[in-house]
Deep mutational scan, measured.
Amino acid sequence: DETGKELVLVLYDYQEKSPREVTIKKGDILTLLNSTNKDWWKIEVNDRQGFVPAAYLKKLD
């Protein structure tokens, strides 16, 4: 059920640097789980959840 889920576009590649982070690729469109922290957003990638720098993402309307 995708209702109410926010999507984000990945602006730059990011390689995870800790187990709490996930790797993302430029151009991916992913589900945003939590954006309350202005610097690190929690997203879902391939059934994995983790954090990436918010500056690497853009919210889609």
Rank of each mutant, 00 (worst) to 15 (best):
L11C: 06
N34M: 08
L7I: 07
L32N: 01
V52F: 01
V10H: 00
A54R: 10
I29F: 05
E44G: 06
W40G: 01
D61T: 14
K26R: 10
A55W: 11
V10G: 04
N46S: 12
W40A: 02
D61H: 13
S18Q: 09
L9G: 02
L33E: 02
L7Q: 10
L9P: 00
S35G: 11
V52K: 00
V22A: 09
A54P: 06
G50C: 06
Y14P: 01
P19S: 11
Y14K: 01
K58L: 12
Y56R: 05
L30G: 15
K42F: 15
S18H: 10
I24Q: 00
P53F: 03
R48Y: 05
V8E: 00
S35M: 08
L32A: 03
T36A: 13
L57C: 07
K25H: 14
E2Y: 12
Y56G: 07
W40Y: 06
L11P: 00
V8G: 02
Y12N: 10
L32T: 01
D28I: 04
L60K: 03
I43G: 00
D61R: 09
L33K: 05
I29L: 07
R20G: 15
I24G: 00
D39F: 15
T31G: 08
T31S: 09
V52G: 02
G50F: 10
R48V: 08
D39Y: 15
K58E: 13
T36G: 09
Q15M: 13
P19Y: 08
V52T: 02
V8S: 01
D13N: 08
W41V: 02
Y12P: 00
N37G: 09
N46L: 13
L57G: 01
N37P: 04
D1T: 14
Q15I: 13
G50E: 04
K5H: 14
T3W: 13
D28H: 11
L11V: 06
D47V: 06
K5N: 10
F51G: 01
L57S: 00
E44Q: 12
L57R: 00
Q15F: 15
D39E: 12
L30W: 15
N46W: 09
L32C: 09
T31I: 15
Y56Q: 05
D13T: 05
V45R: 12
T23Y: 02
W41Q: 00
V10I: 03
K26M: 08
F51L: 08
L7A: 06
E2H: 15
P19V: 09
E16I: 09
E21I: 02
L57I: 06
G27H: 05
K42H: 09
D28P: 01
G4E: 13
K59I: 14
T36D: 15
A55D: 10
K5A: 09
V45S: 10
G4L: 14
P53W: 03
L33S: 03
S35H: 12
L32F: 02
L60C: 09
K42E: 15
S35Y: 07
L32Q: 00
D13F: 03
T3A: 14
V8I: 05
W40H: 03
V22Y: 02
K26E: 07
K42W: 11
D28F: 07
W41T: 01
R48W: 08
Q49K: 10
G50N: 02
L9T: 04
L60H: 05
P53T: 01
Y56C: 13
L11D: 01
V10D: 00
T36F: 08
E44R: 09
E21S: 05
E21V: 03
T3E: 13
V22F: 06
P53C: 04
S18T: 12
L9W: 06
N46Y: 13
T31K: 13
D61I: 11
K58Q: 12
Y56N: 13
P19R: 09
L7Y: 15
N46R: 12
A54F: 01
Y14L: 02
Y12S: 10
R20C: 14
R48N: 06
S35K: 07
L57H: 00
T31L: 15
E44S: 09
Y14T: 01
D13I: 01
Y56E: 02
E6R: 13
D28G: 05
S18L: 08
D39I: 14
G50Q: 04
N34D: 15
V52R: 01
W41L: 02
T36P: 04
R48C: 05
V45I: 13
Y14N: 00
D1G: 13
K5C: 12
Y14I: 02
L7V: 08
Y12T: 08
Y12C: 14
P53N: 02
N37Q: 08
K25S: 10
Q49S: 11
N46P: 06
K58P: 02
K42I: 13
L60A: 04
K59R: 15
L57E: 01
N34A: 09
K5V: 13
G27W: 05
E44F: 06
E21W: 03
V45G: 07
W41A: 03
K59S: 05
W41E: 00
L33R: 04
K26C: 08
R48A: 06
V45E: 03
R48G: 04
L32H: 01
S18Y: 07
D61G: 15
Y12R: 15
Y14G: 00
R20Y: 13
K38D: 09
P53K: 03
V8K: 00
E6T: 15
A55S: 13
T31V: 15
L60Y: 08
K17Y: 04
V22M: 07
G4Q: 14
T23V: 03
G4H: 15
T23W: 03
A55K: 14
K26Q: 10
K25C: 10
Q15S: 11
Y14Q: 00
V8Q: 01
Q15G: 07
N34T: 07
L33G: 01
L33V: 10
S35A: 11
Y14C: 02
P53V: 02
V10W: 01
D47P: 03
T3G: 14
D39K: 13
Q15P: 06
R20S: 11
K38G: 09
E6Q: 15
L11G: 01
D47R: 09
T3L: 13
A55E: 12
D1E: 12
Q15C: 10
D47F: 10
E16M: 11
S18K: 08
E2P: 12
G50W: 05
P19T: 10
E44H: 06
D47S: 12
I29Y: 05
R48D: 04
I29N: 02
E16H: 07
G50M: 07
A55G: 10
Q15V: 14
D1C: 14
W40V: 03
D13S: 09
F51H: 05
Y14R: 05
I29E: 03
K58C: 14
K26G: 06
E6I: 14
K38L: 08
K38C: 09
F51C: 10
D28R: 05
F51N: 03
K17G: 08
K42A: 08
F51K: 02
V45A: 12
D47T: 10
P19F: 07
N37R: 08
Y12L: 10
D61E: 12
K59H: 07
W41R: 00
T36V: 10
I29R: 05
Q49D: 07
T31E: 10
E16P: 10
K59Y: 08
T3F: 11
I24H: 01
V22T: 04
N46K: 12
L30T: 04
W41F: 04
K42S: 06
G4I: 14
N34Y: 06
T23E: 03
N46D: 15
S18R: 10
I24T: 03
Q15K: 13
V8H: 01
E2W: 12
A54Q: 05
T36W: 07
E16C: 10
L60P: 03
P53Q: 01
Y14S: 01
L7H: 14
I43M: 01
D39L: 12
Q49M: 09
Q15N: 12
E6L: 11
K17E: 07
K42P: 01
W41C: 01
I43L: 07
R20P: 06
L11K: 05
K26A: 14
K17D: 06
N46T: 09
L11Y: 03
I24N: 00
P53Y: 02
L57Y: 01
Y12V: 09
K25Y: 12
P19N: 09
G27P: 01
P53D: 02
V22P: 02
L33T: 05
D39Q: 12
L11R: 05
D47M: 11
G4V: 14
D47L: 09
E21N: 05
K58M: 12
N37V: 05
S18M: 08
K38N: 11
L9Y: 10
K17L: 09
T23L: 02
K59V: 10
K5R: 14
L30K: 03
S35V: 06
K17P: 04
P53H: 02
R48I: 08
T3R: 12
K42V: 13
N37H: 12
K58S: 09
S35L: 04
L30R: 13
